[in-house]
Amino acid sequence: MRNLFALIAGSFFGAGLFVSGMTDTTKVQGWLDVFGAWDPTLAFVMGGAMIPMFIAWRLTRVRNTPVLGGTFPPPPKPELGRNLIIGSTMFGLGWGLAGLCPGPSIASLSYGGMGTWVFVAAMISGMLLAPMLRARLDRVVPAE
């Protein structure tokens, strides 16, 4: 049952990324490019996605447990931390460079051509390297 609902959730996510045009790298880079031909689409996608999510977070306060059992995610940690800033900055640089982030890169695997596969392979390599880099960061300046 959990797998079925994961498939349904993933299907909505994949369909949304596809119809919104977010797998088109020029639309993502167009949104980031405030000095070029600015493309507002991404703001509508993010804003639109937050509407059902906002309602869903409200509903987690009414129901105390997920429909399929288990527990809801804990409240967000209040502290920001250096890793959040460094990681998000690195992510943003890569996002702008190729116009791809994790979701759309997976959604476009079937039609994005070799370039998408190269990106995803590099992204997976990066994810494998992350724990090592995080440990190194902690050695240079110990995390608070």
Binding site: G87, M90, A130
Partner: peptide, 10 residues
Amino acid sequence: AGLLVGVGTR
């Protein structure tokens, strides 16, 4: 870009 996105998001 892939490396930056992979490392950064994690």
